[in-house]
Each structure stands twice: as structure tokens, then as C-alpha cells.
Design a binder for these strands. Structure first.
Lengths: 347, 347
DNA sequence: CCAATATACTGAAACGTTACAGATTGCCAA
DNA sequence: TTGGCAATCTGTAACGTTTCAGTATATTGG
């Protein structure tokens, strides 16, 4: 008996993962027709289309990603580029969850591309672009003049930035309105009679540093309060550094009676520093802080908080990149999220 | 002049990404030879090998992932499967960073595969296996009898679990020694004269729930302390629920004088609950808590903490999957990390 | 000196997909 | 009847890689 080697997938034998060839065999059509039928191409008869799609669903056909990617260059991948040292912790998981929520019912996968402090932030982006590893990229820690954004624009790679740029170039972004946040915070403190205010800033160099500082400054003159400079730390510093510097600050004669903090982790340190200096929150000084989860009021109920929703940011960023990939205007894919009110503790 | 269509990559024209064909053209060799030379195949002459590798480095050749994947089935992808609702926040980013650290100088990419509460946890794993989307998988929230682990073993997919299983099946894992943690915690509280202890457990059903409860129970009888049952909450409950239940508990006559908490977030709620009941930490009750970043001592310095390093967990898990993929014995890729001592605040 | 063998290389095929350039059929107008 | 055209469908090639089955040349043993 002549037992020829059978070309693996010509039969619908069962065990192997179905391909277009399998579908073609089962429907009695050509591979090309099947391919087109599945993507609703116009030159396929309505009945054929339905038949193919039915069979495909029945046997659980899933296009082979490698095949598509090799042929078309489309990766069906979104990459989230993260700094593995600076990024605040809770921040990251929330963004990831936000992104995954949006891409859940798309064919996209999310890959996390890390880079460390020692590296040029452009490195991972260059890698992604050069190797064509993603259809879209999301970056954070955005700078006013951001080489990564410029690079991707030049190379025609869709992306979205967490935070705005200021280069006269238009691209999708999502940002929290830190100008408004700082302003609200100042007004809230002024409302409590505080008029010598200090600011724990975002990392110098990032765009939202500017927005925060400007919002702070404008509101200060608006309410007639004055600034107590506190430039020695930012929220990128360690807990210990912030705590120590805050304690130093609070022991001075010209200490502030109100502090605004741009991140929850920093706030923990700030409060510790205040207490190290023998002062009491709510009595000697009030603190307004951003937070991304309801944690600060458990810490000290005297704190005033403003909520920033990073899961929302993740979703918005994902929507933005997908939109750009789908051909929408980059300029129409920008969003700014307003801060919540300044919230006191309510038991 | 006869201007023929040139087959895109036959020349070393420059702009296109180099492929094996490009290298073959440049070196004057065949594509096969180049492919083999790059992976140090034995049948290639030493000089040829060096020459090819030199040229490849010079022009920055990177193998096309889709090509490799299509031909060999190798994806060069590790997937981290995450529950988007339960996973504690800081937890996640640390694990991700740990994983990326390890795969940074490998060709592997990390993809994050999410699933939500409503879904069967097996769903994402089934998807990954069926579509062959990853060479290795990392899962967390491991159960004693874990269908995901069983499924992947059956399908021959390398994986590692964060937490152990108890099915008599051998596979790589990394776990924190929660039995030791609970024991240490009990002994530390006993050392402070506390002998009526309550436990805020991990989620019922996960393996480390058992280890924690057993470590707690064994140490209780060892030191002659007794348990105050507190089964109404676990660390999966909301801050509000834990806080309320703790307050209820602490208002009872038979309230505990020591509490052990399995997660930092829960501890914040526990302390709030204690204070809601009008009691004082360190005087009326002591609390020992796990934490993954140095945050609890800023919160209340009376707290006793034990550190769990999730970044380490991520690294170990990544190493384990890669090891299994590389052919090592699954049984040799298991690790258990010992808890730190129980640490009081030190100014 | 011949055959066997080792060494160094090569072309063709295949992985699953899509795009291109047909092929076949039926229908209608001239 | 014939030519044209629309409506459907199809085969082939190509994306970049690895594997299989060679080929050509030099080297060795008898």
C-alpha cells in the first residue's frame, strides 16, 4: 500500500489549529475567497460570506498573527513604554488596567517595554520603531520638547503621550489638568486662611511640572498669598529625602502654613517631615495632595485631597492610539481631565 | 531604457530593514548559509561565520520576529496573566518590573494578558495556549488545585506560578513563605505580651491563604496564644468593608489585642477601624503587617512590618519560565522567599 | 588512482496570510 | 451571434525565516 506523506493541513483532521486552508477545504472554496469573505470584502457573494463566517465561528478559526504580521506588517500590538525606576507604583498598574480595558475586545495585545534610568528614554522607542514591533506606542513622563514624540512623528508611528508637549507639533495625548489642580489647591488653602504656601513639584523637566508651577503661581497672586520656595525636592525624590527636607523646611521661622503635593507617596513623606518638626497637620499647616486611590484619608484625616484617575488615563491613551491607527486626525485625539474638587475627609 | 521592476531587497539599497537576503547579497553567500552562520551552526567555516556576524552587526541586522514565529512557532513572548480587579496595585508594577529586568537582555517581549472578575480565570490561559501567543506564561492568584496549571501542563506550555499548587503536579513557582510570615508575626506579638490574636487573611481559595492560616494556627499553639476569629473579611475586600468590620470587631468585649494583616492596603483600613473604635495602636492593640514598599511606618510608626519583595518575585518567575523553556527540569525551578524579620519603626 | 568521506556551501519548500492578476459564468446590448 | 461587462471566484507570489535534501570541492585510505 502506498502511504504518501500527506500535506499536513489538507484535510480537516481535527487536532491542528485551523487555518485559511482548513476553511477553504471545508467550504470547498479557494483560500483567497475565504480570506476575503472573512473581512467582508465586497466582491464576495452574500451567501458565501455568511457560510464562510459561520464555519469559521464553528471551528473557532483565529487568524495566525505571525502570518498576518509577516504579510502585512501589522503587528496588532500596542506598546506601553515605562521607566522602571521613576514611575510611581500605583500609577503603572492603573494605567495598564485602563489600557487593557479598551483593547480587550480588539485583536490588540499590550506589550510593556521598559527602560531604566541609565538609558536614554529614546532607546526603547527607537527599538520599537526600528524593529516595527508595535502598531502604536504610549509614552509617559512627557517633556515639553520630547525627542520621542518628535522621533515617532518623523517615522510615522502612531502614538499617544501621557502629558502634553510644547513643540508646535500635533499628536494625541491625555493629560490631567495640573494647572487647575494647583490653582484649586491654592484656593482651598487660602480658604482656610493659609497664605504662605509651598509646593512639592513634579519632576523638573516634565511638562506637567510647568503646568503645576504656573497654576500655583497664578493662583497665588489671585488670592494674594505668597510662595515659600521648596525647590530642593520633587516627587521623584526618595521618601527619606522628601521627609528630611520637609522637616528642615518646617523648622525654619519662615515656614509655610500650607503645602501642596503632587503625589500621594510624596505626601506621606511630607507629613512625616511635618511631624518630625513637631508640628501638627491641620493646626500648624494644611496639606493638599493629589492621590490616585483613596488612601490618604486613612493616613491622616486632616489631609485635603484631589483625585487623579490613572485608569481613565490608560483608557484615554489607548483610545487615542487606536484612533490614530484607524486613521482619525491626531488633533482630535487629545483629552484633558479636570481635577476633582479639593476634598476634605468625610467620616 | 528598460526599467524593470527590481525585486525589493535584492540590492543593499539602504532604506529598508536588512533581512537575511540583504546579508546574503552583501556577503555574496546564500541565504541558508547566512542564517546558519548567525546561529553558530557547526557546518559553517570559521572565517565565514565571523564575516557574516561582523556584517550583521555593522548594518544592525535584527531577525524579523514574524518570520521566525511563522516558520518555527517560537513567539519570543512571555505573557503575564493578571486579574484587573483583584490584584493589589503596587504588587503589579513591581512584578512587571522584576520580569522585565530579567528578560531585558533576551529576545523576549512581555505581554500583559488581563482578565476581569466576571471571567473564568482559565479563559485568558486557554486563549494564550490555543492561539500559541506565548512561549511561556506567568500566572498569579494560584490555587491549591489550579485548573490553569493543570491545563498548561496538559498542553505542554511552560509556565510559572506565583504561589504554589497542591495537586501532586510539579511545575516552576515562586512563593513567599507565608507560613513563616504568620508564625513570625504571632511570635512577635506574643513577645509584646499579646495573646488574643486575629488574622486578616489572604483571599480564601488561594494557596497562600492555607499557608498563612496554618502558620498562624501552629504558632498560636506554640506560644500559647488564642485566636479571635475574624473570618468576615480578607484582603480582597474593599477598604471600607475591612475598616467597618475591624471597628465592629474592636468594639466587642472579646476583642483581640493583636492583629496580623496580609497586605499593606488592608492594614490601612484595619488601623482606621481600630481608631474608629476609639482604641490606640500600640497601647490597646498591636498590628503586624506585610508590605511591599516602605510605606506603613510613615503611616503609623507603631506598626510592625514584614517586607515582601515583589520585584524579586517577578524576576524569579521570569527566570523560572525561561529556564523551563530552555529545557531545564521544572522541579528545579521552584523558589521560596523567606520573610524579613518583623521590623518595628526605627526613626 | 579510485572510491569514500568530510567540509562548506546552496536552492527549494514551507509556515499562514494578503494582494495581484486573472478565470469563469451569466446577462445584456448591439 | 457576438462582444462587453459585472459578479464571483481562484492560483500564484511574496513577506522572512528555517529545514531538508542536496552539490561541489578537497581530503583521506587502501
Amino acid at each position: 500500500m502506498d502511504r504518501r506523506v500527506t500535506k499536513k493541513n489538507d484535510d480537516a483532521s481535527g487536532k491542528e489549529r485551523p487555518t485559511l486552508k482548513t476553511l477553504a477545504f471545508m467550504t470547498g472554496l479557494g483560500v483567497t475567497t475565504v480570506s476575503r469573505a472573512l473581512k467582508d470584502a465586497p466582491e464576495i457573494g452574500a451567501e458565501t460570506r455568511r457560510r464562510v463566517q459561520l464555519v469559521a465561528k464553528q471551528i473557532g478559526y483565529r487568524p495566525n498573527r505571525a502570518g498576518v504580521r509577516l504579510r502585512t506588517g501589522k503587528t496588532n500590538v500596542i506598546s506601553l513604554v515605562l521607566n522602571t525606576e521613576h514611575e510611581l507604583m500605583s500609577f503603572v498598574s492603573d494605567i495598564i488596567y485602563g489600557v487593557t480595558e479598551v483593547i480587550a475586545d480588539t485583536p490588540y495585545h499590550l506589550i510593556v517595554t521598559p527602560y531604566s534610568r541609565s538609558q536614554d528614554p529614546l532607546d526603547p522607542v527607537r527599538y520599537l520603531v526600528e524593529t516595527g514591533s508595535a502598531d502604536g506606542v504610549i509614552i509617559s513622563r512627557t517633556q515639553p520638547n520630547d525627542p520621542r514624540a518628535r522621533y515617532m512623528l518623523e517615522h510615522g508611528v502612531p502614538f499617544a503621550t501621557h502629558g502634553r508637549t510644547d513643540m508646535g507639533l500635533v499628536h494625541p495625548y491625555h493629560d490631567f489638568d495640573n494647572y487647575a489642580f494647583a490653582g484649586e489647591a491654592v484656593r482651598a488653602l487660602a480658604g482656610k486662611g493659609r497664605n504662605r504656601l509651598a509646593l512639592v513639584t513634579p519632576p523638573v523637566g516634565l511638562t506637567y511640572f510647568r503646568y503645576t508651577v504656573n497654576g500655583f503661581a497664578d493662583a497665588l497672586s489671585e488670592v494674594g498669598a505668597s510662595e515659600v520656595p521648596f525647590n530642593t525636592v520633587s516627587i521623584d525624590h526618595t521618601i527619606e529625602q522628601i521627609r528630611m527636607r520637609t522637616a528642615q523646611l518646617m523648622r525654619r521661622d519662615d515656614r509655610p502654613d500650607g503645602i501642596i503635593s503632587s503625589a500621594a507617596a510624596a505626601t506621606l513623606a511630607v507629613v512625616a517631615g511635618i511631624e518630625d518638626a513637631g508640628l501638627k497637620l491641620g493646626r500648624d499647616v494644611d496639606v493638599v495632595s493629589k492621590q490616585s486611590s483613596e488612601v490618604l484619608h486613612l493616613f491622616r484625616r486632616e489631609l485635603l485631597v484631589v483625585n487623579e484617575d490613572f485608569r481613565l488615563a490608560g483608557s484615554e491613551l489607548a483610545r487615542a492610539v487606536l484612533g490614530w491607527i484607524a486613521g482619525k486626525e491626531p488633533g482630535s485625539l487629545q483629552s484633558l481631565s479636570k481635577p476633582s474638587e479639593v476634598l476634605p475627609y468625610r467620616g
